[in-house]
Design a protein around this nucleic acid. Sequence first.
DNA 1: GGATACGATTACATCGTTGAAACAGCGTTG
DNA 2: CAACGCTGTTTCAACGATGTAATCGTATCC
Lengths: 348, 348
Amino acid sequence: MGASLKDVAARAGVSVKTVSNVVNGYTYVAPHTREKVEKALAELDYRPNLSARNLRRGRTGVIALALPELDAPYFAELSRFVIDAAAERGWTVLIDQTDGLADRERQVLQGIREQLIDGLIFSPLTVGREELAARTDNTPLVLLGERILDGPTHHVAIDNQRAAREMTEHLISLGHTRIGAIGAQDNPSANTAHLRLAGYRQALEAAGLPYDDRLTPSTRSYHRADGAEVMRRLLALDEPPQAVFCFNDLLALGALRTALSAGLRVPQDVAVAGFDDIEDGRYSTPTLTTISPDKGQIARTAVELLDARIGGTGRAARRAEGDAAEVREVEADYRLIVRESTVGTAGA
Amino acid sequence: MGASLKDVAARAGVSVKTVSNVVNGYTYVAPHTREKVEKALAELDYRPNLSARNLRRGRTGVIALALPELDAPYFAELSRFVIDAAAERGWTVLIDQTDGLADRERQVLQGIREQLIDGLIFSPLTVGREELAARTDNTPLVLLGERILDGPTHHVAIDNQRAAREMTEHLISLGHTRIGAIGAQDNPSANTAHLRLAGYRQALEAAGLPYDDRLTPSTRSYHRADGAEVMRRLLALDEPPQAVFCFNDLLALGALRTALSAGLRVPQDVAVAGFDDIEDGRYSTPTLTTISPDKGQIARTAVELLDARIGGTGRAARRAEGDAAEVREVEADYRLIVRESTVGTAGA
DNA sequence: GGATACGATTACATCGTTGAAACAGCGTTG
DNA sequence: CAACGCTGTTTCAACGATGTAATCGTATCC
């Protein structure tokens, strides 16, 4: 279909390599030649064949973003930032959904797309130390979310434990003494969940409040439905919580829904807080108190780290650098955003 | 990095082509040879180099999905379906966000990624007849959303006008006579908006209700904020509407928020309906009456059409078939889903 | 038993691009 | 003026995979 360098060369009456030189902005091309070639390029609407270029260069210009679910708003929002940040550096992003399945996550690590991508940004859900250590594929990798082990892996995350602690402290500061948490996970490699739970417990302890595990039921996943269901269970307790800290906003929105349809007022009867600051929470009724990670910063940092790791050159260089470079752990910013669901004055 | 056919061949003591034959399941390979080769393949953990394969085959195995915004839930949900449907057929999906910008949409049509993709599924927002007709790139294309012109373009969509009409009829059947619509667009090529508005007007007309353009203000885009803002204007009218039909769920959620914080009860004081059936609307309070397009069907159909159009073979065949094949217009299913925001009994 | 057919394997060219190196021309320089 | 250095251009050989056609061995047929 498209014209090749050969076609352009024929038309311009020069060699293929000269056309290649023009295309790549090589300095030593006579103005007159350059002009001729550019004319031919334009006339034939030349576009480099990326497969060929990649084959030759040993690069593809594509990075993958592997995440649990694209239709979870947090990840959708994050994706947008990653895509934008990548575009700025000339990368194309390919998205890989793992559905949080251990199997799929392992595949991602083993490099299903190895030959298609130059690098990988990976937000794991269940994968643990062993799997990561066992990784043989040496495609440059940047992890999002809490770091998993001391292996040679860059990662970018907010301090989940501290953030969770702050949120819990916020709820305590409002006078609540019986505070639930939604989002604990049975899966021991669900790192993020553990950290948030740890932060929650820290805050309780620091305030001298007892920890009651009936108030921290685990959920299967992090969707609205899980939040809604678990909230029903919490409200059915003899002593239901006065406030609930949900480990993400979707859970919180589900919990909110349950509370409201049970006829409770939020926050007067029960306060609800989330985590992630997805857009939904800014328009729910009541609006949602949450932790807002700096998603733009996370995305930008991840892409930068990956970019640096992929390095300037092809695969030979990649291997060399990759192993040598030291691991960077970047802590991203976040803010506690207080809205109506915890200190509300909203009517209804 | 990865082992090449050459490496495997050396190890197995056969020619490169024989290894290639094994890899590709060619029939005439002696069992003994096959065994040897497979052993070598496994030992070296061989993975075909896609750039090389693509260069040779003239295919990339990648299709692009171009849509306005990944972080609009409707598109995020749709993406997931498209990605799944594509994966089933061995395609990898690359997502292109246009932000609904005319410029970016035009670029997509002109084939920014031409050399990287075998096909394109495109959900346009602003692009019109002319741009589509002016398209020179002949990458197979399937449009999502209302068809734009009689050009050689497959497309998949629900009958927006009929759906909008049904929704409006639903509101009318509840006894509302003063019904607003949120989501009209000034942009004349905003096809979908026009169709939904047309459906709305049809229903009014059929019911003998007057059309009042103060009740159908246009919005800049389709986010919660737009819905919230326009709803404020509607509520400030001398005679505010008794019901509001929003052209997507995000607008509806924004409108809902405005209504509720103005102290109105929904649906008792004002009914609100949306369009798209995003998950948010199933958990908002009140839950959202909406039109639910069959996203799975849309995605599957789009991928199938594209698959057929790309055809079995390389680029030569592609061009030939592409022009010859007749255009297929597929109408996808949808359902009207009635929830609390129009016939609610929810407390609060 | 020699021609024939077919199974199994290989050599070679090729996809489009680019790095390395060679080469041609021309002005400098010692 | 020969050697050198520079610009400008070309030739050549890859990158890794695969389609085509050629080759080789052996079982089959008359």
